[in-house]
Design a protein around this nucleic acid. Structure first.
Lengths: 330, 330
DNA sequence: GTGAAAGCGCTAACAG
DNA sequence: CTGTTAGCGCTTTCAC
């Protein structure tokens, strides 16, 4: 690989001049510029980004920390982040935290040693305590971290209300909720939306709320238990789509017809919901949009863009996506 | 952030000494070592990896190039690569190529400028022509690149034969195939497996082979057409699971019962296949295993490990995973 | 055993 | 307009 020195020699100028034409800064005579340009071409010179980064203290890399890329919610997010990052000439590093604080911190450390420029983080464990003092821009996604850290989220509370209201509108007489993990903030908000929509009904009671793990198998398990204990439940709002599919599976196993005997609504709007039978009614999050906007903001912060807005907590409206799991033929 | 110079000053030694204890090489007195260690702790010193990389001409980064992380086959692969990379203290960069040569090449370039140490690549467009001259270790996954580039693949041909044989064993009298994209090598192998299993049957004809794109919607479309034109088809082998689900959807739309009127087998073994109704019979690839072994090999090559074997083309056996889409109740 | 110094490849004063 | 030079933070000869 040719270095800037080789180019300088070849063009008969100093490295400073080459650097100037490379970065398009400082004056340089048109003639010399051309000479340098042609030397660059001849030698197929590509600047060493590492050397650049070392000097600039910035690596043009951003990290995306998600709980687990195998959870179908995240690939779309990752894709959005990568698309924007690449467009802005940043390199994108994917990190799976498994929702463990230690892993998150390890990634922060490792990448900071490489002068990473910023992070987009989906976390339930990281708090202001951890992020303060870590001298690098952070944007939160899907789950908030602290007031002073920008965040991009869907309106989880309203989304949940819409979901449950949709079940009521469909004639459901007793609606249960499978909530997400205790420590996940958006799970709390969705639960609250459920409670606030149904708590004044006479049939409502605490046993209608069971806890899942945002994954399929556990949701299926608890759904089976729930449906056995409460045979009159005719509507379930699941905390996310994956769990909703677990509920579909549970109903299947119990010989309960969806949607006629049991209507189901999920949350997220991942494409998985289109592949099931019946297809899944859900609350759609603008996943790609959130990912790309978060990335754009992060890069603005990194580059100290003047057009930065003050409102750094963006909340997207939740949208009901009606599909078969709530389309009763009755 | 403290630098090596700060540590040296604090410990009253030279930077060379600090470097020696850091890298555990060269002689250093036990006393001085302890002093240095404690200074490192006191100052919370973390070496700057970029500076290191610049000198070493190696960044401890590997790139994973896949067509599209949103395709459910790849998250598991990515996860495997990341797990191993992290364990071996490498950082992992995810790149989506959309199966476009230019994007692949762009990533190669960008990352090489950062002294990336190697690549794991899933590609249909990259050939020896492109990889020669690019002076960095490469391992191919899922699809071969050239004889001199190590590769990890499942036995696509045998897998296809097993799939089709399974349909025959289930009593299917006319089996069609939805093949993957023309340019994808594994699609060719799977097609060949199909052909070699059924070509001697009197019912076999070319119209039973239609081309999909490894995605759901097109597969569904062509499946509908196929089933309308050939109402007597009672078995379909789809080139991958996603397309197989498209076939399930197609059957649903046409009011064809799966598996009783139509048995379906996919290929890949992604978890998506467990969420459908009926669940999908498929040929399982050891995705995580392939990803992790490929990563381990890549790192061995990078580190010039002596235990390197000669056999650099690993082929995993394909395994039939029987689920509902072929369990006839007849 | 330890330190001084050169250099990885690049950028940015500072002179001229 | 252009060249010289001093770093960015680290590793590694080469002396002592």
């Amino acid at each position: 690989m040719a270095t800037i020195r080789d180019v300088a020699k070849h063009a008969g100028v100093s490295v400073a001049t080459v650097s100037r034409v490379l970065n398009n800064n400082g004056y340089v005579n048109d003639e010399t510029r051309k000479k340098v340009m042609s030397s660059i071409e001849r030698l197929e010179y590509q600047p060493n980004e590492l050397a650049r980064s070392l000097y600039k203290r910035s690596s043009k890399m951003i990290g995306l920390i998600v709980p687990d890329i195998m959870n179908p919610f995240f690939p779309e997010l990752a894709r959005a982040v990568e698309d924007i990052a690449t467009r802005k000439e940043y390199t994108f590093v994917l990190c799976n935290s498994d929702d463990q604080l230690v892993k998150e911190q390890k990634y922060f450390n490792v990448l900071k040693q490489k002068y990473v420029d910023g992070f987009i983080v989906v976390t339930s464990t990281l708090t202001a305590e951890h992020t303060n003092g870590m001298n690098v821009p952070i944007v939160a996604l899907d789950r908030p971290i602290a007031k002073h850290i920008p965040s991009f989220m869907v309106d989880n509370y309203e989304g949940a209300k819409i979901a449950v209201q949709h079940l009521l509108d469909n004639g459901c007489k007793k609606i249960a909720h499978i909530r997400g993990p205790e420590q996940v903030y958006n799970a709390k908000l969705r639960l609250q939306g459920y409670i606030d929509t149904v708590s004044h009904y006479p049939w409502f009671n605490e046993n209608l709320i069971v806890t899942g793990n945002y994954n399929l198998s556990l949701a299926k398990e608890v759904a089976i238990k729930l449906l056995k204990n409460n045979p009159d439940v005719d509507g379930i709002f699941a905390g996310n789509d994956v769990m909703a599919i677990g509920v579909i599976k549970a109903a299947e196993e119990l010989g309960i017809n969806v949607p006629n005997q049991l209507a189901i609504v999920g949350f997220d709007g991942i494409s998985l919901g289109e592949t099931t039978s019946p297809t899944l009614t859900t609350i759609q999050q603008p996943i790609y949009e959130m990912g790309s906007k978060a990335t754009e903001l992060l890069i603005k912060i990194i580059e100290k863009d003047r057009t930065l807005q003050d409102d750094l907590h963006v909340q997207y409206p939740a949208k009901l996506l009606k599909r078969q799991s709530t389309q009763r033929k009755a």
